[in-house]
């Protein structure tokens, strides 16, 4: 969907967080000068069309004990990537799974899956599970552990754009 100026103001006003008030949409309405009903109507539409995936929390995996995570990357037969990607994406320890273009010759991997666990050894065990699931369709693979979060703000809209 195409966002109009009011949609943008709505998203700009809330992208750093929803007001912690019993009636957060009324507060946003006051802030941008429209009615609460209009804010509710617009958010419902933004969610229907997928612009807003949900209004909710981003849990901090580390604080909640999931301190180990690795970006596992796999070079998988293109013909089988759709089927295998769906299978990997359905595993309980996989948070995101994407098919992406390779960057040859440096980067032969086309399937990316984020693996989570409470310890590095969990993640390594998950990795072996993915490896056995992929079988002969996988030519090579690697895993990239994060050593530092450098930024985590989520998407920001430019205001007035």
């Amino acid at each position: 969907m195409t966002l109009d100026a009011t949609d943008r103001r709505l998203l700009s006003a809330t992208q750093a967080g929803l007001p912690l008030s019993p009636r957060p949409f009324a507060e946003i309405a006051r802030e941008i000068g429209v009615s609460e009903d209009e804010v509710l109507r617009r958010f419902a539409r933004l969610q229907e069309t997928g612009v807003v995936r949900r209004i909710g929390v981003a849990p901090n995996h580390y604080a909640l004990g999931m301190t180990a995570n690795g970006m596992s990357v796999w070079d998988v037969d293109d013909d089988m990537a759709d089927v295998l990607g769906a299978q990997i994406g359905a595993l309980a320890f996989v948070s995101h799974c994407y098919l992406r273009p390779r960057a040859l010759p440096d980067w032969p991997y086309n399937l990316f899956a984020m693996l989570h666990g409470s310890e590095r050894s969990d993640v390594e065990a998950h990795r072996l599970e993915v490896l056995s699931l992929l079988g002969a369709a996988c030519r090579s693979h690697d895993i990239l552990y994060s050593s530092r979060i450098l930024k985590k703000t989520g998407m920001r809209l430019k205001t007035g754009a």
């Binding site: 998203l11 967080g17 929803l18 912690l20 989520g154």
Partner: peptide
């Protein structure tokens, strides 16, 4: 315990 509370946006959908 949480890093964010608010709308999660999908750039592609807009």
């Amino acid at each position: 315990a949480i890093t964010r509370f608010g709308p999660f946006l999908d750039a592609a959908a807009m």
